[in-house]
Design a protein around this nucleic acid. Structure first.
Lengths: 137, 137
DNA sequence: GTCTCTGCAAAATGTTTGCACTCAT
DNA sequence: ATGAGTGCAAACATTTTGCAGAGAC
C-alpha cells in the first residue's frame, strides 16, 4: 500500500463548502431542511439529498457534529468543541451549554455492570429564556 | 365543571393490558415493532398502529418511558425508576445503568446562561459485554 | 348507551438511494 | 481523464391519522 494512499479523499465542492460555512455561522443547531433553506439562498439549485449527503460526510470527517437530540428530526452542530446541549421543552430549540457550566463526573475506567463506557451524551431539558419570559401561553 | 370530571379516562383494554405486561417483563428497551412482535404472540390480530397509540398513552400516563436514544427508532422502557441508559456502539442494544453507579452532579438551581434547567437525559456509550468478548469482527 | 379504542389502509414525515450527468482534482 | 459528487425522482423506514365498527364502562 502506498504511503500516499490515505491522502484527502474529499473534494471540496461548492455545495460542501457553502454547507460548512453556513453551519459554522450559526449556533442554532439546524435540522437538515433548515440547512437546506440556509444554503439555498446561495445555491438555489442544490438538492436536499446533497445536503443530507454532505452533512453525513462532514460529520464523518469530524467537521460538524450530528446531534441525536430528542424530537423527530436530527440536528447538526458546526461547533465541534466539547459542550452539552439543552433543549427547550416548549419550543424545541437547542442551545449550547459550556462544559464547565455543568461539569460531568469522570467516566469510571472499570466497566459498569459489564459495560465498557467510552463516552456520554448529555441533554439538559428545561425552558429557554424566550419561552420563560413569554410564560402566558 | 364537575369535581368528578378528572377521573380516570383510560380504558384498560385487552391490548393495552398486554402491551404493558410485556413491556414490564423485559429489560431490553424494545422498539415499537419489537413490542408489536411480543404482543402478537398473545393477540395475533393486534395492529401496529394500536401498539404505537398505546405506547403513547402509557408513556403520557407515566406507566412506561419513551426513550429518545440514538438511532433511528424510538425505544420504550417498562421500568420508570431513575436510571441511566448505555447504548452499545457496536450492536445498538440499550442496557440500564443504576443511578448510583454513575452519580450525576446536582442541577444548578440558577439558570445557566438564560436557560432554566429542569432535568437531564444521559446516554452512555461504549461496548456491551457481548460485543467486548466477541472482539474479533 | 356512550365514547374511547381498535384494525385497516392510507398519509405523513424524515432520510436514503439509483441513475445519468457534472465537475474537482 | 477519472471517479467522487450532484440533482432529480423514486424508494424506504418509521410514525401518525381518518374512518367505520367494536367493546369497556
Amino acid at each position: 500500500m502506498n504511503i500516499e494512499s490515505d491522502k484527502q479523499q474529499f473534494r471540496m465542492t461548492r455545495q460542501r463548502k457553502v454547507i460548512l460555512e453556513e453551519l459554522r455561522k450559526v449556533t442554532s443547531h439546524p435540522t437538515a431542511d433548515q440547512v437546506y433553506e440556509m444554503v439555498r439562498k446561495r445555491l438555489p439549485r442544490i438538492s436536499l439529498a446533497t445536503v443530507y449527503r454532505n452533512l453525513e460526510t462532514l460529520s464523518a470527517a469530524g467537521e460538524v457534529l450530528k446531534l441525536e437530540v430528542s424530537g423527530t428530526q436530527r440536528r447538526y452542530d458546526g461547533d465541534t468543541s466539547e459542550h452539552h446541549h439543552a433543549r427547550c421543552a416548549m419550543c424545541g430549540s437547542v442551545i449550547d451549554i459550556p462544559a464547565k457550566a455543568f461539569p460531568m463526573p469522570k467516566i469510571p475506567s472499570e466497566a459498569i455492570e459489564g459495560f465498557d463506557i467510552s463516552g456520554y451524551r448529555l441533554e439538559l431539558t428545561g425552558l429557554c429564556q424566550d419561552c420563560r419570559t413569554t410564560k402566558a401561553v
